[in-house]
Design a protein around this nucleic acid. Structure first.
Lengths: 265, 265
DNA sequence: CGTGTTCTTGAAACTTGTCAAAGTTAGTGG
DNA sequence: CCACTAACTTTGACAAGTTTCAAGAACACG
């Protein structure tokens, strides 16, 4: 019940005891420890399995030929690297650990076993995938439309909300094991300006940031600066999904895949 | 054989005559004509079906409360709006036509029929979906790391390559029914600066752009300015997928959904 | 207790945005 | 088919935001 994948998927569907049991040994399948700054997989690698972050922070990123680098997303405990790695012949981006991290390697066949055994789990996996897409869209907007200050505030909001959803906050504080250089690669602003931007957020009494220790002093103020609306994170999708579990079929039209499972199962 | 969905999916898998037949009437299911600047669906709408662009150009976009707007992607003939609309209770972004456009409305049940009837089609649909995600990642990098000039060049490269793949180019020219204001919303730069940037591309003898008529004068030069690598568009994915069709099961580990279809079918 | 990484600061340069107005094009109705 | 209007493109001058470079301070690790 307490493994990260269970907790994650439980956000998207009301899982039964059997569902949890199914996920339980998936988490233990094969665990790999990755040190800070080490890659989990690299652009161009042949995909072998899905990676599930059990503990620690990771990021997905992609580089330009000349060395410029863009962080695509941060992966927190319970997050699965996106499924493209299984369908395409080569990974088109890399993933690396920001702190000491442990990741579970889940084979494709295991995933499909899980999905076939439980329509709820398939539904939850699809939703988890779609939430990843929604986040990528939000990052697109963040980079395209927001100012440096707004972007930083937005990123901090996202991380704080996500950490809170998985129980990794204490009141209004959390860890932020990310260097300013990495924040720069995530927000598309220079490292120097990240520094100035963080100072501005501090000066506005919105956050306190010392070392890797972040405190949100004024979450509403921060959200308002960031034009942050947590909807895209779908942190409470479970309400609708609960109906799914009850009726056997989702109340909203299912994605092609969810539909498949419902009919074909 | 000649409908846009067929052509699109044929890029991702070697389709049989039956596959094409299946797709044939899907395209005709229900066609809606949308005038320029008109919305196909709007953020907050309840999803009813998938939209397939048959003809004309459309865009997906999302707005900030204060009116700033980010284009998320352009949809050309053969493109499907992404599938999130079916799994989430509310659309989290809008889609609107850039020119007179016709879109087919494909119901969720129809999609799942198609997917269940042919593993190849399911596989192709999944790939189509993943290519959309890869594009979104590329846009993230574009906005985060490239300069205004590089971004414009990159966007033009993407559009030209995509148009060529669907036969909508004539030599090195194509239509570009997009105002500079829209290009601004897509590249995250101001409309005025878009204008200057286009002039710079013209001055470098890379493109000719008069009205809605675009000519690429030096595609290699443009790609090099843009740091453009067409790989993410997966314009030639069919090679691997051909194997799929032959062996009945993909040679690379299938996505959870493709796996489902292969086993459950 | 070094030593390398990360954070911070200042000044100057550069890119991009804003404002405002003029020119051009396209579409509509008389 | 012209005239008129609205939408779109182009221009210049200036302001603002952000980057770059360079150097010093703080911190973290072995």
């Amino acid at each position: 019940m307490s493994n990260p994948l269970s907790r994650r998927l439980a956000r998207f569907a009301a899982l039964t005891a059997e569902d949890h049991a199914l996920l339980e040994d998936a988490g233990g399948e094969r665990v790999r420890r990755v040190g800070a700054r080490e890659d989990v997989f690299r652009e161009g690698d042949r995909p072998r399995c899905l990676y599930l972050v059990l503990d620690g922070w990771a990021m997905r990123y992609k580089s330009l030929e000349d060395g410029r680098r863009q962080v695509l997303s941060f992966a927190l405990p319970g997050d699965i690297c996106d499924q493209h790695v299984l369908l395409l012949s080569r990974a088109d981006h890399s993933m690396s650990a920001l702190s000491a991290t442990s990741v579970a390697e889940i084979s494709a066949t295991r995933i499909s076993e899980i999905a076939r055994a439980s329509p709820r789990l398939l539904y939850a996996l699809c939703l988890s995938n779609l939430v990843g897409q929604a986040s990528q869209r939000e990052w697109t907007i963040n980079l395209g439309q927001r100012t440096a200050l707004e972007r930083m505030a937005h990123l901090i909001c996202e991380l704080f909300f996500r950490l809170r959803a998985i129980g990794l906050t204490h009141g209004n504080t959390c860890e932020l094991p990310v260097t300013q250089a990495t924040l720069a690669d995530a927000t598309g602003i220079s490292a120097v300006h990240v520094n100035r931007t963080l100072q501005e957020l501090r000066a506005s009494n919105l956050i306190t940031l010392r070392g890797k220790h972040l405190t949100i002093d004024d979450i509403e103020g921060l959200q308002s600066v960031a034009l942050f609306n947590p909807g895209y994170l779908h942190l409470d999708e479970v309400e609708r999904a609960t109906q799914t579990a009850r009726d056997g079929e989702p109340t909203t039209p299912p994605l092609l895949l969810a539909a498949l499972a419902a009919d074909g199962g």
